[in-house]
Every structure is written in structure tokens, then in C-alpha cells.
Design a protein around this nucleic acid. Structure first.
Length: 217
DNA sequence: GCCCAGGTGGGTA
DNA sequence: TACCCACATGGG
């Protein structure tokens, strides 16, 4: 299984090249982006992030001090703005109370314990949690999303009923705990599915075996 | 106009 | 546990 997972990774890497995620300038921006991108197209998140930068509030103190109504208006393009402004506030409040608003302090802790604590924060589910740990904190946890389950189910490596933790375990139990590898693998899965699982390209050019997406024969 | 996007939490059986 | 639903904007 480990070799199969590595083969798929190598094919994706050869086809798309290194993507070097996350698309953000700072670890804090990764955390905000991870919350904003929940069930939302990344292009919409970019608009919201841009607005936060222009308002000069894209840092722990800025998001702590801004009113929630104003925050909601700034992130409006990312959708679910009422829900997400509350989630950002909840995360910032937790970060402030627990680690004095410092991501450095937060990441200084044992990451597996930190993962459990992060999951307790309202609005931080498993994917958002792992994205923050991997892409903002360089911790070796694998990020699973809807694309990952869809793709590996179609490749026959994962049951259709596999949940988040089971899917994550497939990768973490069969691949070395390697941050650059986990970083690239998740990014490549997303990039591949954007192109093929959304019918933008014909399957003749697919770097994986036929059957990886609904457009495949 | 219709479908869906790099989810999550709350409610119900 | 296993579904079902709300949450909302913007691009294809």
C-alpha cells in the first residue's frame, strides 16, 4: 500500500510539479484561510483575505479588536460570512486565552495534544485543524478533504464509507511522517481534482490510471 | 437558471 | 451511529 501511495504521488508530482503550499504569506494567514475556505472556492477566499489585508486586520490583535459585524462584511466574498466571522472570533479568542495570541507559543506544544485541543474549538473541524497544523505549523499530519476521499475511492484504495480519521490513517500509516511529502501530496490531490474531477481536461491526459474521476471511461 | 466549492455543527431517529 | 439541514458568495 505504501508503494502504491508513493507511485500515485510521484505521478502527480511529475505531472503538476511541486506546488509548495499553502498559498499565504504568513502562518497566521494560513489559519485564517483554512477557516475561510470551508466548503468554499479558493478564489472567493482570496477576495476576503485581500479585504482583511487592506483593512490591516490580518493578525491576531487585528482580528481580536475588530467588531464581528465589520469582520463579517470584510469576509463577505468568502460566503457563510456570519458563521465564519464567529469561527474566526472563536479561534482568536482561544489563541489569546491559551497562548497569549501567539502562534509560536501554540506550535511549541506537542502537536498531537495540540490537535486534540484545536478540535475542541468551535468551527475547527478535522480538515481545518490538520491544515493549520501542517501548513502553518509544519507538523507531520495528513490533510484529508472531499477530493481525497473521492479520488482514492475511485482508485479503489478506500471504501466509500471511510470517514475522515480512517482516510487520514491510510496515508499516515503507510507513508513516512514527512512534512514536505504531506504538504505536496495534499496540494497535488487538490490540483489534480480541480482539473480532472471538474471536467476541465480530458482523461486522455490524466496522469493517473483511468477511473480516477467521473469523466474517466 | 442550476450546480458546486480545499466543511462544520446542530438537530432528529 | 447515521442521515439531514443551514450556512452564502461567485464562477462555470
Amino acid at each position: 500500500m505504501g508503494q502504491q501511495l508513493l507511485d500515485i504521488f510521484e505521478r502527480l508530482l511529475a505531472h503538476y510539479g511541486p506546488l509548495s503550499w499553502w498559498p499565504a504569506e504568513t502562518p497566521f494567514e494560513v489559519c485564517v484561510g483554512a477557516i475561510l475556505t470551508q466548503n468554499t472556492a479558493w478564489t472567493n477566499v482570496e477576495k476576503a483575505v485581500r479585504a482583511l489585508k487592506q483593512a490591516n486586520v490580518l493578525d491576531p490583535a487585528g482580528l481580536r479588536d475588530i467588531g464581528q459585524e465589520r469582520l463579517a462584511q470584510l469576509i463577505r466574498p468568502a460566503g457563510y460570512f456570519n458563521v465564519k466571522s464567529q469561527r474566526l472570533k472563536d479561534f482568536i479568542g482561544w489563541l489569546q486565552a491559551k497562548f497569549d495570541g501567539s502562534l509560536e507559543q501554540m506550535f511549541a506544544n506537542d502537536w498531537q495534544g495540540l490537535r486534540n485541543e484545536l478540535l475542541e474549538v468551535r468551527g475547527i473541524g478535522p480538515e481545518t485543524c490538520d491544515a493549520i497544523l501542517l501548513y502553518a505549523g509544519q507538523k507531520p499530519t495528513f490533510v484529508v478533504d472531499a477530493y481525497t476521499r473521492r479520488l482514492f475511492n475511485r482508485l479503489g484504495l478506500l471504501s466509500i464509507n471511510s470517514g475522515y480519521e480512517e482516510t487520514r490513517a491510510l496515508f499516515m500509516e503507510n507513508l513516512p511522517a514527512d512534512v514536505p511529502l504531506y504538504n505536496e501530496y495534499h496540494a497535488l490531490i487538490v490540483e489534480h481534482c480541480k482539473q480532472f474531477c471538474r471536467k476541465k481536461a480530458s482523461c486522455g491526459e490524466c496522469p493517473l490510471a483511468a477511473g480516477c474521476c467521473h469523466a474517466c471511461p
